[in-house]
Design a protein around this nucleic acid. Sequence first.
DNA 1: CTCCAGGAATGAA
DNA 2: TTCATTCATGGA
Length: 313
Amino acid sequence: MRIEIDDDLDLGKIAESGQCFRWKRLSDGAWMIPAFGTYVIARQVTGMAERAKAAGAGKSEGSGPSVKKPEVPALLDLSCTPEEYEHLWKNYFDLGTSYRRIRESIDPADSFLQSAAAVGKGIRILRQEPFETLISFLISQRKSIPAISTAIERLCRVYGKPLGEVEGETVYSFPSAEDLAAFQCEKYGYGNAVGTCPEREAGFSSCGLGYRLPYIKKTANFFAENENALAEFSVLSDEDLKEALLSFYGVGVKVCACTMLFGFHRLDAFPVDVWIQRALADHYPDGFDFDRYRPYNGVMQQYMFAYYKNNSH
DNA sequence: CTCCAGGAATGAA
DNA sequence: TTCATTCATGGA
């Protein structure tokens, strides 16, 4: 099906934003996007990026200050039924939120944030599964983004379920907490494995998790044994959710903020990595005004991240 | 081969 | 409280 999206949307920028690690670029430029135990093939037929590129050649006509150029809606092709779109993918892409409005709320006097938003325009905060997001960012620590993707794909191949074939490769679901908790490892002493290490035999040791393995196992065990936990977490205040996530072994402030922003859709969460640290130091020596952009600081973080990553400062 | 990666736990000061 | 060390492994 095809749908018009009258808002900021750029699949390529979302894929590079560091919030999702399983999107796969297909040979024709479309994206294979696994989520919620299924997947969709998404293709942006025409979008803001192309339009901006085309319009950029002619530059602005005259100097009309109040002539607002009309936004051309992005066209999205999805390999799903209208019902699946309504019940799943519309929510996944967070199409009920206007990122254009959030972007346009940026202080016109803040030239850096304006530039960052111009670079990051089209980024949306996906509504991803909390468990998958938490595990993914537990894995992410001290790993490059390509390495994170490989590790997650291995985890899915070993513990997930086959969903179908795309371009000759099997797509797997992200494993559930039960799937992950069902395995034990003598090396790290979890579960009641004695004498054997099913994880190693099943391929867990080759998932590249390294010292993060106990983080993943403890977290998976918790959610396997507390089926209501995710639902309970999702209704907590930002402050209480932060405290709850930080109590997990292996979850520090960075992983916590990423999980809140990308997994629990807390748009005010503001993950600080080395790039953001530099951005804040370079442009906000007296401190970034978080009150000014509440409750959308996380979106601002995404713009800053896109800007600093693409300009290799 | 070397170097570093969207960090966090741990123990010391 | 902040700081240095250590952790395991894949990419580049």
